[in-house]
């Protein structure tokens, strides 16, 4: 091999080594960040379901959720995830617990994107689901007679229904695989 080729090969190897170092650094930071996310999600789901989230989450390539946890405890298995729910009032991160049949059992807001509205910080069903109209979710039975209240509840449910449906589908496929 002549000197010029040798020089070229060395340069290419040096560049490849440089890119490999960058990739290893990014992977290292990503693993650290991911372990922090998994720990936070596991804590949120354990607090919500009263069950322990299994060590290794299942992976999904959905734009709104990426990890599904098997929640261990008494009785039939439960599955949990932290998903992004988008609505007219902004976006929130919600911890969701599903039964093995794909039914939503419990939900709680664990973070909000750009909503900043009070409903995102309290109970999810009573506060978030149902907001969206000019008036809040009915706190008294008499409020249900107002048309705009009912439409607000419907709109929020509609906003979330698609994502919840996809999570439910993922739970069903995970439950099938487990069996």
């Amino acid at each position: 091999m002549d000197e010029a080729r040798k020089q070229l090969l060395l340069q290419n190897l040096a560049a490849a080594g440089f890119f490999a170092v960058l990739a290893v650094l990014v992977a290292g930071v990503a693993i650290l960040a991911e372990s922090g996310s998994i720990r936070r999600e596991r804590e949120a789901l354990a607090a919500l379901a009263g069950r322990k989230a299994q060590a290794l989450p299942m992976r999904f390539t959905d734009p709104d959720f990426s990890r599904l946890y098997l929640l261990e405890g008494k009785g039939s298995p439960r599955y949990g995830t932290v998903a992004r729910l988008d609505g007219d009032g902004g976006s929130v991160l919600a911890a969701l617990v599903f039964t093995g049949k794909g039914d939503l059992e419990a939900a709680r807001i664990v973070g909000e994107g750009a909503s900043g509205l009070p409903f995102a910080k309290d109970g999810w069903f009573s506060e978030f689901l149902g907001k969206g109209a000019s008036r809040g979710f009915p706190r008294a039975l008499a409020d249900l007679r107002r048309g705009d209240v009912a439409s607000g509840a419907t709109r929020s449910l509609d906003d979330c229904a698609e994502t919840l449906g996809r999570v439910s589908g993922a739970v069903l496929s995970a439950a099938e695989r487990k069996e």
């Binding site: 560049a15 890119f19 960058l22 990503a30 936070r40 929130v92 994107g113």
Partner: peptide, 28 residues
């Protein structure tokens, strides 16, 4: 290529830092 690689490296690090800063904000 080295400069582009560095640019991608910085963007990846910034993205991870932003996610750690506020996961809900960066999710969108």
């Amino acid at each position: 290529p080295v400069a582009l690689g560095l640019g991608a490296f910085l963007a990846a690090l910034f993205g991870l830092a932003a996610e750690a800063f506020s996961p809900a904000l960066t999710a969108g």
